[in-house]
C-alpha cells in the first residue's frame, strides 16, 4: 500500500514503525475497536490519525453524527476502527446519541477506546464509569493534554489508571503525541496480554441496591452464563425495550449486531 505515505502528509510522526494506515480497506480484520467519548474530545482526530482518513473535525460538540469506519494494521494484526458520535451517557434515551450508545452496548467491540478531555476530566469520567460497567476491555486516551498543559492543569495518568483499573494514555491527537503508546495498549488489550480490572460502581441507595440484587438473582437463575447481570438489571429497571425483549425470548447474551443499524454512508459525499 503506497497510498499510506500520501495519506499522511501531515503526520508529524512517521516513526510509529509498526503502524500501517489502511484507510477504508477493512477486509479481513482481526479486531474491532470502537472510539467512544464525550462530544468534542478529539475522537475523529484520533480516528484520522490512525486510519489516515479525513473525517471532518471541528471545535464544537456534535460534529460527527454518523458512524464512520476505517482500518489500520499494527504488529501484523488488522484492526477495524469505528468512529462514533459523541455521547454524554449510556443511560440516556436521547435519539442523537443512539448510534453511539447502541454500538457501545451491543456492537461488542474487542476494545473500546474512550477518548477523554484532559481539561474536563470529572465530567468525562461519568461516561467512563458507565462504560466500565459493561465491558472491561477498555483503553483510555487522555487527549488534549497539550491544552491541559497550556492551562496548567496537571493530570496524573498513573493515579487515574490505578483508580479506574484500565490503561490511561496521555495524548495529543492533533500533534500525534502519545499515539504509539495508545496503539501498544489497544494491541495488548485486544490480544489479551493486558487484563483490565475495572473499578465498578456501587450504589449508595439501599432501595436501589435491593432492587438490583433481587433482579440480579432472578436473572442469574435463568441466564447463568451472563457476564454482566447487574447492568442488565439496571436496564430492566430503566425499562429498556431491547433488554426486555431479549429477556422475554431468551436471547439475552446475544443481543448484538442485529440491533445495529446499517452503516449510513453520508449521501452528500
Amino acid at each position: 500500500m503506497n497510498k499510506i505515505s500520501e495519506n499522511c502528509i501531515n503526520c508529524p510522526a512517521h516513526n510509529i514503525s509498526n503502524l500501517k494506515k489502511l484507510g477504508i480497506d477493512m477486509s479481513s480484520f482481526d479486531y474491532v475497536v470502537a472510539l467512544a467519548g464525550n462530544p468534542n474530545t478529539g475522537k475523529s482526530t484520533v480516528f484520522n490519525y490512525l486510519t489516515g482518513l479525513k473525517q471532518h473535525t471541528g471545535n464544537w460538540p456534535g460534529k460527527t453524527v454518523t458512524r464512520a469506519e476505517g482500518a489500520f494494521e499494527y504488529n501484523g494484526k488488522k484492526f477495524k476502527l469505528v468512529d462514533l458520535p459523541g455521547t454524554y451517557s449510556l443511560l440516556s434515551t436521547s435519539v442523537d446519541e443512539e448510534v453511539a450508545r447502541d454500538f457501545i452496548l451491543f456492537g461488542q467491540p474487542d476494545v473500546t477506546v474512550i477518548v477523554i478531555d484532559a481539561t474536563r476530566v470529572e465530567r468525562n469520567l461519568n461516561l467512563v464509569l458507565q462504560i466500565l460497567e459493561i465491558t472491561d476491555r477498555v483503553v483510555i486516551c487522555l487527549n488534549l493534554i497539550d491544552e491541559a498543559r497550556r492551562n496548567q492543569i496537571e493530570v496524573d495518568h498513573r493515579t487515574l489508571s490505578k483508580e479506574l483499573g484500565v490503561p490511561v494514555i496521555p495524548a495529543s491527537a492533533r500533534q500525534g503525541e502519545g499515539m504509539d503508546e495508545l496503539l501498544k495498549y489497544i494491541y495488548e488489550v485486544a490480544v489479551g496480554s493486558y487484563i483490565c480490572k475495572p473499578n465498578r460502581l456501587r450504589s449508595r441507595s439501599k432501595e436501589l441496591n435491593e432492587a438490583i440484587e433481587k433482579l440480579t438473582e432472578m436473572i442469574k437463575e435463568v441466564f447463568p452464563n451472563l457476564p454482566n447481570t447487574r447492568w442488565v438489571a439496571l436496564r430492566l429497571l430503566e425499562g429498556d425495550q431491547n433488554i426486555i425483549d431479549a429477556v422475554r425470548n431468551g436471547e439475552l447474551g446475544n443481543i448484538n449486531l442485529s440491533k445495529i443499524v446499517e452503516i449510513e454512508k453520508e449521501a452528500a459525499y
Binding site: 454524554y88 451517557s89 443511560l91 440516556s92 434515551t93 436521547s94 470529572e122 465530567r123 461519568n126
Partner: peptide
C-alpha cells in the same frame, strides 16, 4: 422530565 432531565444530569 424525561430526556431533558437526563441530559442535565449527564452534563453533571
Amino acid at each position: 422530565r424525561g430526556q431533558q432531565r437526563r441530559r442535565l444530569m449527564d452534563l453533571g
